[in-house]
């Protein structure tokens, strides 16, 4: 644990020192979030509710998504860079240290821009989420579990690169899950809905936690914890097996 904390601290120092087109990117992030909010306001201006989802609950969903995705893409930003790290041989650094390489990599890099999403999500919850102590506690718990699941999903898909040498599934999977998580899961029916609870577990990233905050049920909580546990095991297995096939960026020929 103290190992992880030390890396986290270094990652923060690193992030604040790293020059970036910071304000441009924060502007982009805010523009993106505001455009989605505008969309939902306009949408619910015409449509009172969709299959049990009204404006308030969709804002709650969006607040959870922004916070959880902000945590993953901001504080654990290497979660989505596994293919890149593997292809360039950047895992060597992690592998020469006496700690878990996955844990080291995940906390090694902070993207401050996405941290802005966290602020946005929390503010949105405070403004539109009717916060009470109970709802706030459920919000926080839901966000933490959702972020864990999202991280595990990204690591699992990213680890495909060890076996196929291709990073596209990781990139496409990230866009897919973030897109799908941004809409009420109940707009889908049948098999499509089933997929969102299983293969691409987008439902658990925002819709289910939003439902838990609004109407807590043990069934939802159990489902969500189960899905998260499954993906955490998958991620660890895929990454672990992948490491055995790691080529350190030198497919061949390099000394």
């Amino acid at each position: 644990m103290s190992q992880t904390l030390a890396v986290v601290r270094a990652a923060f120092t690193d992030a604040t020192a790293r020059p970036a087109a910071f304000w441009t990117q924060v502007g982009a992030m805010v523009a993106n979030d505001l455009a989605m909010i505008a969309f939902w306001i306009l949408f619910f201006h015409q449509v009172r509710s969709v299959r049990g989802w009204d404006a308030d609950r969709v804002f709650l969903l969006f607040a959870i998504l922004a916070t959880a995705a902000g945590i993953v893409l901001g504080f654990l930003s290497n979660a989505r860079r596994i293919p890149e790290l593997v292809e360039t041989g950047s895992l060597d650094e992690a592998l020469s240290l006496p700690m878990s390489p996955l844990r080291y990599l995940l906390v090694r890099r902070v993207d401050t821009v996405n941290v802005g999403d966290v602020v946005f999500g929390v503010v949105l919850f405070l403004v539109t989420g009717h916060p009470t102590p109970q709802r706030a506690a459920l919000f926080v718990g839901g966000v933490v579990v959702a972020a864990t699941l999202l991280t595990a999903f990204l690591v699992t898909l990213g680890s495909v690169v060890f076996f196929t040498g291709r990073g596209e599934p990781g990139a496409l999977g990230m866009h897919a899950i973030l897109l799908l998580a941004g809409y009420p899961v109940d707009i889908f029916t049948g098999a499509a809905k089933g997929l969102l609870y299983t293969v691409v577990p987008a439902a658990f990233v925002a819709a289910v936690p939003a439902r838990i905050v609004d109407a807590p049920s043990w069934r939802d909580v159990a489902l969500m914890l189960l899905a998260t546990a499954v993906f955490v095991v998958l991620a660890r297995t895929a990454f672990g097996l992948g490491l055995r096939r790691y080529t350190s960026g030198s497919a061949w020929g390099r000394g």
């Binding site: 103290s2 030390a6 890396v7 270094a10 700690m99």
Partner: peptide, 9 residues
């Protein structure tokens, strides 16, 4: 700063 982190690791 790097040494501090490595020392903890």
């Amino acid at each position: 700063q790097s040494f501090r982190m490595l020392a903890a690791i």
